[in-house]
Simulated assay, not measured.
Amino acid sequence: MRALTWQGRRNVSVETVPDPRIEEPTDAIVRITSTAICGSDLHLYEIFGPFIDPGDVLGHEPMGIVEEVGAAVTNLSPGQRVVIPFNISCGECFMCRRGLQSQCETTQVTEYGTGASLFGYTKLYGQVPGGQAELLRVPLADYNTVPVGADLPDDRYLFLSDILPTAWQGVDYASVPDGGTLAVLGLGPVGQFAARIGAHRGFRVIGIDPVAERRDMAARHGGEAHSDDDAVERVLSETAGRGADAVIDAVGMEAHGAPFIRAAHHALGHLPDAVTRPVMDKAGVDRLAAVYSGIDMVRRGGTLSISGVYGGDADVLPMKTMFDKQLSLRMGQCNVKRWIDDIMPLVEDAADPLGIDDLVTHHASLEDAPSLYETFQKKADGCIKVVLRP
């Protein structure tokens, strides 16, 4: 089959690799019909090279048609159309029963002390081949698939794999009071959906992003949108000086700013993996500009909800300010299956209340993936969301 593979920092290529096969009786093989490039994929493209091997298949936002099932699979059959959540979970363990599928005790990567395994996402999360490919092996397939109907196009369902539940969880964790104000930092795909979900719930939404096309898209769906120039002052001035009731950080570790840390990330990318891994694992730091802004623009007693990915264990936070402002902090990988039942009626609503049909800016073939990784990272050509058709 053809698959998008990691080859080095800022170097991905589509290669012919062996077809996946049934390895356990609980597996299924899915022929991918659509697969997206996620902002989290850019962390692999830029930073996490020491935890990836050349040839690893990337991608964690896929859907397709079931082609083959193992002997123990009872809920699926060939020909069924499914979305595949990005985290791999069992649905039965202590964590899964509590709606914490991203912490699944069956698939936790204990070697690295991390949570549930993920498709296409480094040794830290199981090094499981991903879905930017023609075929995907899905472990524990009865639980790790979301059957969908046949009447709507892929683009309406595809984002159930990651970014739509991620945004939903971010808004849920934000605990915005009725009629309150939600600030969203970063209007990439997750930020777009977070802003729309906030507006759908009746909140005032203030979105912050340096890219005009992203601001324009957010404004089409009920949000106010501003550049990141003087963002803190802007939010404070719009909220009687108090700050927003809640702030969602939909940016993560590669936020603009912190040039010294950016230079350190670049330097680490040129060192041998054996040297870099322990540094990143124990002493890694992130570019925390978005977190710092969020702390400053949320009101006292408010909530900072973090959906953007962070990977450092030596980050410095302004604890005095956070304590003094009595902030609540929620964060974490999305527990995709926890939110599907809440979101599915909105996805299948003919009125498209979350504007799902207005998100993808680039459709392309799998063979075009390498150039579109670069386009997406550079935010060039108005690129907000890329969907590939293998």
Rank of each mutant, 00 (worst) to 15 (best):
L185C: 07
A314G: 04
A244I: 04
C334G: 13
G180T: 05
G131A: 08
R204K: 09
Y143L: 01
I22Q: 10
T74D: 08
T375L: 04
C96P: 00
L268D: 03
G284K: 08
H200S: 07
V109L: 02
G126D: 04
C334S: 14
C104M: 06
P189T: 15
H270D: 09
R338G: 07
S328T: 00
G355A: 12
Q377G: 11
S161N: 13
V309E: 14
A289L: 05
M344W: 09
S371M: 06
L329Q: 00
A264T: 00
A244T: 04
I37T: 13
A351C: 00
W339R: 07
T26L: 14
G39E: 14
Q192V: 15
P390L: 10
V128S: 10
L288V: 03
Y125S: 12
A199Q: 08
G302F: 02
L372C: 06
G64W: 04
L158Y: 12
I65N: 12
L158G: 13
I65H: 10
D249Y: 12
Q7E: 14
L388P: 10
A174M: 05
A369V: 02
D209I: 11
H266N: 02
V17S: 03
Y173G: 00
R81V: 05
V211C: 01
R201C: 10
P18A: 15
V176C: 01
M331D: 06
Q7F: 08
